[in-house]
């Protein structure tokens, strides 16, 4: 399996929400729904403070509990990669995947099927970065193949302290945050 990863530098992220808007327009996500979002986490006491901004989305887990939970095989891996997609024609909207996702990354479309971040596989196929990554004005977001040790994402993870969210689930999430 080819592992695509997103690596986001929280030291440079300004929490501007451009990734959210870029995703919505690129993917024509309806009003009221979002496939990605920005979390602001402030720790400490005035004046000794630390604020971390995180652009969050589906983690395209190497061990995706959503995929295991789907009773109709609507959730699937795209072309032997870790990119997890949903086939609306097979999705019954039962919500099992929503319950199984540790990240609350899945949403129900008005039509009744489940949707989520696709890592913009339609762009990846053309050699482009996902819309959020390629629009980010601070260039704090990176995308690439982890199996390639020379990719930017591999190099960043090799050289910088980082974390992934809810690692303890064993899902092997593939969105990393440089800290």
């Amino acid at each position: 399996m080819i592992r695509y990863a997103m690596v986001i530098d929280t030291k440079l992220c300004i929490g501007c929400g451009d990734c959210v808007v870029a995703c919505k327009t690129e993917n024509k996500v309806p009003a009221g729904l979002n496939r990605d979002w920005v979390v602001e986490a402030t720790t400490g006491t005035y004046p000794n403070l630390k604020t971390e901004f995180r652009s969050e989305r589906c983690n395209h887990c190497a061990k995706p509990t959503c995929l295991y939970a789907c009773p109709t095989a609507a959730t699937y891996r795209w072309e032997d990669t870790n990119i997890v997609l949903v086939d609306p024609n097979k999705c019954t909207g039962c919500g099992a995947c929503i319950a199984a996702c540790p990240y609350d990354a899945r949403l129900i479309m008005n039509e009744g099927y489940v949707s989520k971040c696709t890592f913009c596989h339609h762009r990846v196929e053309q050699g482009l970065d996902p819309a959020c990554v390629s629009s980010c004005p601070t260039r704090c977001m990176h995308f690439g193949v982890l199996d390639d040790p020379n990719s930017t994402v591999s190099k960043l993870l090799a050289s910088r302290e980082h974390k992934a969210l809810l690692d303890e689930t064993g899902n092997e999430p593939q969105v990393y945050f440089l800290t």
Partner: peptide, 13 residues
């Protein structure tokens, strides 16, 4: 912009 619009620019529509 170096090819990257901001939040508002991307929301210009």
């Amino acid at each position: 912009s170096t090819g990257r619009f901001c939040t508002r620019g991307d929301g210009g529509l």
